[in-house]
Design a protein around this nucleic acid. Structure first.
Lengths: 210, 210
DNA sequence: TAGATTGTTAATCGATTAACAATC
DNA sequence: TAGATTGTTAATCGATTAACAATC
């Protein structure tokens, strides 16, 4: 399957399925129907089945879906079986917080190095990971084959960092700078400030989750 | 206008317009047409006009939009003219990073206090903001009238914190825990791990920004 | 006035939801 | 077999895009 391009809307739901199935498995649930899953996740049963069938038929008619099978399939679709080497550019607040955050390890994302221009930071270690000068970024990626580059630098530096990362052969970019960077490799823009601004809007216009 | 409910898709674009217009103003641009704006933001000109007309006619036929007028209108729609008092629950990596981050101040979001269960943290200051025991959360909100509550705690504590915040009269919740919390006030879920997982998907399936 | 560009209605496109035959 | 639930096609709904009259 997946002859057709999978829509962004479906892709955005995949991590939610993944998280929810992890929880179900942890709770000892062995099988689940599209109906129950939809109810728990506040989705529509048809939508759940449509989503899964973008990638193949993982269920059994009359029975439902085996939680461990479905989880394994989605984990595979999301490509979460391997290890990803992550480099972080910008060892300020966000960069340091990400370097300390253990939550990504369990999905295979390991921070291997940080980069900064600040000479006071260069040479130090953050949570056991070295902080290198940003001039070494390109060489480091080429020599060590980093998979994901995190941009936790100021807005004005973001695009140049993205260019250098892509040029050096990074696999993908996770951008925390408040600007949309463009690259020849996949980019995920985080835009945290957009998120709190949307909250401000919703508060002013009293939009409550149902 | 805004007789009809504004769709989530439009709301999500509002912070992008806001950011882009701030930049245009900083660059000294005085007026802009929907066509140019659409081109710069990689949107469609009709879409830009439709979006703005959810809230009223801010343009002049034959002329376009005055950047400062449009900016002021959108800032107002987003309710970014006032000040928001922000409390952060969880003074770990994320909580501390947010307390240090200066970027939100310019949009009117000021962190006033952090809360944690860890006795080693309670009583300290982070970037000049006090860390209080989480037991004091409810009383603090009631007495000081916090507007936004940030949940930067572990997954298992998130929903209870949300309940307490809402009960104590918080205006809105910004949730960084990897679980969808439900509340009687507006909630923005951040789900950072979903974002990096989507990146993993896109890398595996070679989806590049055009 | 003529030219440009909005505001707004209509057409298209895509995503969600419903329906149901296939089948475990 | 009968009941349940999927996989998949069809219908609906909403968002995006196109078209164009209004008007600055």
């Amino acid at each position: 399957m997946q002859s057709e391009r999978v829509s962004e809307a479906v892709i955005r739901r995949l991590p939610r399925y993944y998280r929810h199935l992890l929880q179900l498995k942890a709770d000892g649930v062995e099988r689940i129907s599209s109906g129950s899953l939809a109810q728990q996740m506040r989705l529509n049963a048809s939508q759940v089945r449509q989503d899964f069938n973008c990638f193949g038929g993982f269920g059994q008619q009359g029975y439902g879906y085996k939680v461990d099978v479905l989880l394994a399939e989605i984990k595979n679709i999301l490509s979460l079986n391997g290890k990803y080497k992550v480099v972080i550019v910008g060892a300020g607040n966000i960069g340091q917080a990400l370097a300390h955050f253990e939550g990504f390890e369990k999905d295979g994302f390991s921070v291997v190095a940080l980069f900064d221009v600040d000479e006071k930071l260069v040479g130090q270690e953050i949570n056991g990971k070295p902080v290198l000068h940003v001039d070494k970024l390109d060489a480091y990626i080429r020599e060590n084959g980093a998979d994901i580059g995190v941009i936790a630098a100021r807005r004005s530096a973001a695009q140049e960092i993205a260019d250098r990362m892509a040029q050096a052969g990074i696999g993908g970019i996770w951008n925390f700078a408040p600007v949309d960077v463009v690259a020849s490799v996949p980019v995920e823009q985080v835009h945290m400030s957009d998120s709190i601004i949307c909250l401000s809007y919703k508060m002013a216009h009293k939009e409550t989750a149902e």
